[in-house]
Design a protein around this nucleic acid. Structure first.
Lengths: 348, 348
DNA sequence: ATTTAGCACTCGATCGCAACGAGTGCTAAA
DNA sequence: TTTAGCACTCGTTGCGATCGAGTGCTAAAT
């Protein structure tokens, strides 16, 4: 492992260019190629020497003796940390995205699908996001709606705005009025309470209400146990044209994670512990993460109101994903969503 | 194009075996291979002659002169129509699936994810389903919940059980009591009404209610305009290991459809016009469907209560998908869902 | 002490070519 | 009508030659 700042200015320049070129071309980059495409005052031999040094330092790697250089994970990391400092999304793009969000219908679901769509387009990789999720599930409102016979639709709204619906089969038909009364009563009693409080309240005499409050507690416990809000993603098919994914079965297996939603949610949640809202984290080569993600990188950030109502969004792509488009986009969208969520849920 | 029943018994047997073998092996099948793997009383030469005849008739095709035979679309169709007649899912599998559904929490969302998961596993292809969708959107219930300041969460429940939530920004803060009164009033007035009826009712004097009823009408119109319920799918990554998809960019492009949810919904909705609930339709080679689906087949069925509350489910896979596992599975799951939906929504 | 021109060397990629073999269609005998 | 026999087709496989992008090293130049 190399120390951080032992690079000369020229080495730094060469390293960054190699990474940049490799990200674009997906081909090992050699000294001549570098001279052709970028401005240099030195000759190819000098560049070769520097590249050898960078290889020695662990930032670059040769797939085989007579090939150009490819960044190592360490190399990507250097590139990314240089990137993190600066890198704003261009003004006009910011405006477009911002506009799209304010144009959209004010529903969380809309925001989520818009966010993944924007990120997928911007990064050309797979984007994911979890809906904002309250740190603590608190009861807001209950509605019971008779549909037919003994079937009742229960709609449970949490203070986070999360809506939970479930179909109950009662032992016998109950008229809508009685259902409404029960719902109003329970709503009054439970308003603002947490799962524990609701579970602790002694079951009331009324059999119907007792049944229902049991189900309410269950539903809330489920909501609380979830590590995050609902997961959305986009860009899966776009990424299939990347060479990494069409070639190797290895990388393709990584995509299989996407259908194991709970696994992925856990991954996102785990990182929440580390980074606060605002900062962009970049996991390169699946450091500290899953085996399947060896070949991948993840750029992620958290949004929302810290400690109250947060979600995670990120981009999953090949290690040579376009960080300079992805990182600013992730940061910007996270900021935008924090604002929107803040407007609606702040101070509960 | 060949007439339907001009095949001798032996030709029929050979054709079905060729299709079956090709579906399994993904390799052109020759006369010798057929003799090895299945029981024949004739020699390879006879089989060759019959294969030549079947090629002449348009059921088979040779990728090149010295290769085995591959089914044409016509060949697949013959195979499928032979299949449609019989083909039940094995009893134990039926029981397992049935059990899973009755075990699941009684929520539409659960049913949908379970359905796609079962179908994806059973068919080894991409499965899709649209949530049950009412033929006509009818108002059931409205709830207004103040979250913070001028922000109000509107929860609109339709008689179909579809729940619609949206965040409103009012001109000025309104206390929860006033919101509740408005919601109760509107719920009474609108109960059971269709979009048109609601839009037709003259806007009332109360400004708050007027605003809200406008939004309700908008939301209902959106719900009505949607060609189907929410789209779920599964099995995307599994299908990537099929040779059709890892080899050709062509087939991979078909998968891109899956992220254009509206397109896909339209496709499913369009077929609804043709087949009623119960029958399984098989679209081979994207007949009458999209350009992108040239290489694919779709097995689909409708479920629910005809004319009232229906959804579509299907499997999208390569033309050589395993019809004999897919067709019975689609039929069975459609039946199961019809029952479940019927229990809850019948007779509204 | 750097930098650079020159050069031998490496090794994957590409090309051409021969051999292989699965599969066919045809003919003639059973 | 079936089938054994056979010539023929043509994609696949294997192999050696060649190519060329790229390297590292050495020795001269700055």
């Amino acid at each position: 492992m190399a120390a951080m700042n032992d690079l000369t200015e020229r080495q730094r320049k060469i390293l960054l260019l190699v990474v940049r070129d490799y990200i674009e071309s997906a081909q090992p980059v050699g000294s001549l190629r570098l001279l052709e495409h970028y401005q240099f005052e030195t000759s190819s031999a000098t560049v070769r020497n520097e590249m050898a040094a960078l290889t020695e330092l662990g930032y670059l790697r040769q797939p085989h003796t007579s090939a150009g250089r490819v960044p190592t994970e360490e190399g990507y990391r250097y590139f990314v940390s240089a990137m993190l400092r600066q890198a704003e999304l261009p003004e006009p793009v910011q405006h477009t995205i911002s506009h799209q969000f304010h144009q959209a219908r004010p529903e969380v679901e809309e925001w989520m699908t818009l966010a993944v769509s924007v990120l997928a387009r911007q990064s050309q990789a797979v984007s994911l996001i979890t809906a904002p999720h309250a740190a603590q599930a608190r009861f807001k409102h209950l509605e019971l709606i008779s549909t037919q016979g003994r079937q009742v639709l229960m709609v449970l709204v949490l203070m986070s705005g999360e809506v939970n619906q479930q179909i109950l089969s009662l032992a016998e038909p109950v008229p809508q009025e009685r259902l409404s009364l029960a719902a109003i009563h329970l709503t009054q009693v439970y308003a603002g309470r947490s799962v524990e409080e609701i579970a602790a309240l002694s079951p009331r005499a009324d059999a119907l209400e007792a049944d229902i409050s049991l189900l309410v507690a269950q539903a809330m416990r489920r909501a609380a146990e979830q590590t995050g809000g609902q997961l959305y993603f986009d860009g899966l098919t776009r990424v299939l044209s990347e060479p990494e994914f069409s070639d190797s079965e290895e990388a393709r297996r990584a995509l299989r994670l996407l259908e194991e939603r709970n696994l992925l949610q856990e991954l996102l949640a785990r990182s929440a512990a580390e980074g606060g809202v605002g900062g962009v984290q970049v996991l390169i080569g699946g450091e500290s993460a899953w085996e399947e993600l060896r070949q991948c990188s993840i750029v992620l950030a958290h949004y929302g109101i810290p400690g109250q109502m947060t979600g995670t969004l990120g981009v999953l792509g090949p290690m040579r994903m376009s960080y300079n488009r992805t990182i600013p986009a992730v940061r910007f969208v996270a900021g935008l969503l924090s604002e929107l969520v803040g407007d609606v849920f702040a101070g509960q």
